[in-house]
């Protein structure tokens, strides 16, 4: 697989074709996010054999199975815990966690903040579609207020999580956010995540068109994906727009970059130091 940059990117090289077409609903943003990931992997010339995808439960969790790599589909909310073990035991692998808003912010919230704190090298791609799609459209921690879901039939009243602020506050080395509409930027961000030596967290704003979109009358798939444009605000190039005037705009791009020591390397250095001092004694 090395030297595949010379080859033009063809997504079919990275898919388990016999499983296609995938099970996602028509217009689901998760597919676009998956393309971005695979294209980033291609452009960075990461070997499929060295790529380990760990995913949880839900629509986001099932996405991993379509990747022709070492894929682990684990328990609900726990992919970051599994990935921590995998990445520590096998530092040679490129570990990517694919998780969802419910998976990583609700049931797996604890694992997320501690993975951010630990700063172990891996990439966490959180596909945020504001809803539990697989189970039929229940409210998730990122469901906007007033939105209808099957468990908020009169509109959600709970405040939402800002996953990126959470990750940044918890100490994640790299925090980013992008919408699926901006596939090329999403891919570039993912490349940065994969190259980052530490824990990188990327929130992908994805659309649940069939369940969430329909329930809230958000329009057709093309309408929903276009609406992402009106709510995003690229932030990579500094203060293009003063924030106070557009308070409802969601920042996209690289949102935080904390240069901190990577955990696995730190652990191994720490151990080496211990052993050395023991030898002297």
């Amino acid at each position: 697989m090395s030297n595949n940059l010379s080859k033009e990117f063809n997504i079919r090289d990275y898919l388990r074709e016999d499983l296609m077409p995938h099970f996602l609903c028509p217009g689901c943003g998760h597919g676009i996010a998956l393309r971005a990931l695979l294209q980033a992997v291609h452009e960075l010339e990461i070997s499929k054999d060295q790529l380990a995808i760990v995913s949880g439960i839900g629509c986001s969790g099932r996405v991993g199975a379509y990747i022709d790599a070492n894929t682990f589909h684990v328990t609900h909310g726990r992919p970051l815990a599994f990935a921590t073990g995998l990445a520590l035991a096998r530092p040679d692998l490129e570990v990517v966690v694919i998780t969802g808003d419910g998976d990583s912010l609700a049931i797996g919230g604890n694992h997320l903040i501690h993975a951010c704190r630990r700063n172990l090298k891996m990439t966490c791609m959180m596909l945020n579609n504001e809803v539990y799609g697989m189970t039929g459209g229940q409210a998730s921690p990122t469901t906007s207020q007033t939105r209808y879901t099957t468990t908020s039939p009169k509109g959600s009243i709970e405040p939402v999580f800002d996953a990126c602020k959470l990750a940044e506050a918890a100490g994640a080395g790299f925090v980013g956010r992008e919408v699926t509409l901006q596939m090329p930027s999403l891919k570039n961000l993912l490349k940065k995540c994969l190259q980052y030596d530490g824990f990188s967290f990327l929130e992908v704003i994805s659309d649940c068109t069939e369940i969430f979109g329909r329930k809230n009358q958000l329009g057709t798939s093309p309408e929903m994906i276009l609406n992402q444009k009106s709510s995003m605000r690229p932030d990579s190039y500094g203060n293009i727009v003063d924030e106070p005037f557009r308070p409802n705009f969601m920042k996209t791009g690289v949102l935080a970059l904390n240069e901190r020591p990577e955990y696995s390397a730190t652990y191994r250095q720490h151990v080496a130091r211990q052993l050395k001092s023991k030898e002297k004694k």
């Binding site: 815990a81 599994f82 073990g85 995998l86 990445a87 520590l88 035991a89 692998l93 604890n110 694992h111």
Partner: peptide, 13 residues
């Protein structure tokens, strides 16, 4: 839960 997950991750590795 995480420690159980982590050992399974390591074992799968």
């Amino acid at each position: 839960i995480a420690s159980m997950g982590a050992i399974l991750g390591a074992s799968m590795g």
